[in-house]
């Protein structure tokens, strides 16, 4: 009985997990456009690509960009500073990307701080996803 309850508990939790992971690149773009107070159509893939590639002063006199870890081609796997593989960032190559708002926010907070020494604005986040979701 306990075991059955536990199993149905797991099933219920599974449903909750599915429900909370129901974000999509499109819904996140809509969310960031709204947070920035701009129309969805004004998000720009070109600005997103520029944000991805822009070089900033980093440590040891080296420059750093989003591409340093995620590589110049976001359909390719990247590498963390410690050398661990990072799955591709473009949804075309990795459908799990931009499907969990909390995860997306966590990494924008960390990586924008790391690379730009500041937070990314809501519009920059929208642009970034706009670009990655049209990479084919």
């Amino acid at each position: 009985m306990i075991k059955r309850l536990f199993c149905s508990g797991l099933a219920a939790l599974g449903m909750v997990a599915v429900a909370s992971a129901a974000d999509t690149p499109a819904s996140l773009m809509a969310h960031y456009a709204q947070a920035a107070g701009v129309p969805l159509a004004s998000l720009s893939a070109a600005r997103g690509a520029a944000l991805y590639r822009a070089e900033h002063p980093g440590r040891n006199a080296q420059t750093v960009s989003c591409a340093s870890c995620h590589t110049a081609d976001p359909k390719q796997p990247g590498r963390s500073r410690v050398g661990k593989r990072i799955e591709p960032l473009a949804p075309a190559a990795n459908p799990g990307r931009f499907t969990d708002a909390a995860k997306v926010e966590k990494w924008f907070r960390r990586n924008c701080g790391d690379v730009l020494q500041r937070e990314c604005s809501a519009r920059e986040k929208g642009d970034f996803i706009a670009w990655l979701s049209q990479v084919q």
Binding site: I2, L5, F6, S8, G9, L10, A12, L13
Partner: peptide, 10 residues
């Protein structure tokens, strides 16, 4: 009951 047990488990 399910809620309590899954909370406990987690």
């Amino acid at each position: 009951a399910v809620g309590t047990i899954s909370l406990l488990a987690f």
